[in-house]
Computed example of a mutant assay.
Amino acid sequence: MTSELLDQALVTQALIEEATKKSGLIWVQGAGEPAACALWHVWHEGAACLVGDGPGEQPLSGLVGGGSAEVTVRSKDKGGRLVSWTARVVQLEPASEAWEAAVAELKGKRLNAPDGEAMTGRWARECRVLRLEPTGTVLPLPDGDLAARPVPSPATTREPVPAGLPKLLLKKRKRK
């Protein structure tokens, strides 16, 4: 490998690692899936680690051990796309050394766990822990908006503000 190619590979690796480390969410599209879904993760030992597919955890649809995935990383500050990369999906076996190391990192980042300290036992019994290992390939960023239209629902229908609401809000401010 020439030094120019080696330099390019190191720059690519650094870009993927830094962008993914700093992003709270990554958009992951498994092989054969129609769209990407947002997943929380931690960056650990050169890969994005995920936990899911169990009760109360994120779905990992389309992500199969030994398969591949496309990962798009967004900016934590502005929300814009920074980099898209391909990954090899590796499923970690519960109680293995790699699983224990990944779960130790994931445990610290999991918010609002219903079972607190017992969550690692639940993850071992009912969930999957995956590593998304970069293959070194950076994909071109997609053009345009990739957002899907929301499903029609009465819960998302906006109604006009009632005519009396501004007056009620102003009266409460004057009383204080």
Rank of each mutant, 00 (worst) to 15 (best):
M1I: 10
M1P: 02
E4N: 10
E4Q: 11
L5I: 09
L6G: 07
L6W: 10
V11R: 02
T12P: 06
A14P: 08
I16N: 02
I16T: 05
E18M: 12
T20Y: 01
T20E: 09
K22G: 01
G24S: 02
L25S: 07
E33H: 01
E33R: 04
E33M: 01
A35Y: 02
A35N: 08
A35M: 15
A38P: 06
W40N: 08
W43E: 00
W43L: 08
W43P: 09
E45H: 00
A47G: 00
D53V: 01
P55V: 09
G56C: 05
G56A: 00
Q58C: 03
P59N: 07
S61Q: 14
G62V: 05
V64I: 01
V64N: 01
V64W: 03
G65F: 08
G66W: 03
G67L: 07
S68M: 07
E70D: 12
V71F: 07
V71N: 02
V73Y: 04
S75M: 00
S75N: 03
K76F: 11
K78T: 14
G79K: 06
S84H: 12
S84A: 13
S84L: 12
R88W: 01
V89F: 05
Q91K: 05
S96T: 03
A98M: 03
A98L: 11
W99I: 04
E100D: 15
E100V: 07
A101I: 04
A101F: 05
V103H: 10
A104T: 14
A104I: 11
L106M: 04
L106F: 00
K107S: 15
R110K: 13
R110Y: 14
L111T: 13
L111R: 12
D115I: 14
D115F: 14
D115G: 08
G116E: 10
E117G: 04
E117H: 06
T120D: 08
W123R: 02
A124E: 07
R125D: 11
R125V: 00
E126M: 13
C127G: 12
V129L: 00
R131I: 07
R131E: 12
L132P: 01
L132K: 03
L132S: 05
E133W: 03
E133M: 04
P134A: 03
P134S: 05
G136T: 06
T137Q: 07
T137I: 15
V138C: 09
P140Q: 03
A147P: 09
A148G: 14
R149E: 15
V151P: 12
P152I: 08
P152S: 08
S153W: 06
A155Y: 03
A155S: 04
T157R: 07
R158M: 11
R158Y: 02
R158S: 10
V161P: 10
P162C: 09
K167N: 15
L168M: 11
L169K: 05
L170H: 13
K174A: 11
R175H: 11
R175K: 15
K176R: 14
K176I: 08
K176M: 12
K176L: 12
